[in-house]
Amino acid sequence: MKFKLFMIAGMSAVLAACASTPPATTEAPPSEPPQTTRTDTPGTVDQGPVPGTEAHFVATAGDRVFYDLDRSTLTAAGRETLRRQADWLNAYPGTDILIAGNCDERGTREYNLALGARRANAARDYLVSLGVSPSRIQTVSYGKERPTCRESSERCWALNRNAITMISGGVTG
């Protein structure tokens, strides 16, 4: 199973620019590639990302969870993704993460800064409940200021209602 996932991850890194559906490790609604596959190096594509790297994290766990309109409660799919994130984080205990909460553009600015913080906190709290030390986790809200998807469409708004987990420290390789 793990091997298969790595293969798919390698493909997704290659096809990232084509907006292919990311590996089954990311939850359902969006058809958008993970945004943060920046640590890929040319020699590693065929084997998948180097274990312990952010690319590896994205490929094996999925780096983001999505929220319903105006909500900050985790969905079943979101909890599933966070369980994989917790597994990965528990396997690489030297890493630290930053969780960024984001909102769609259909809300006022300050309201969305608060809502984004709630989304990041919901993800953090669930990871902590799964054994990830809170000292490894930082959160930030970007409100509606940093959309993944720029169109004004329901599809993009759904993609932009998220909490994205980024490896912020302790990456090996």
């Binding site: 006022t108 600015r109 720029r150 169109e151 004004s152 993009c156």
Partner: peptide, 23 residues
């Protein structure tokens, strides 16, 4: 978003958004 009153309370400035190509 973000209404702002004129000092005499007769006019309001505000952020107005319209649908664009990139958001």
């Amino acid at each position: 978003d973000t209404p702002a009153w004129s000092p005499n309370g007769r006019v309001i400035l505000f952020t107005r958004g319209d649908r664009g190509r990139e958001g």
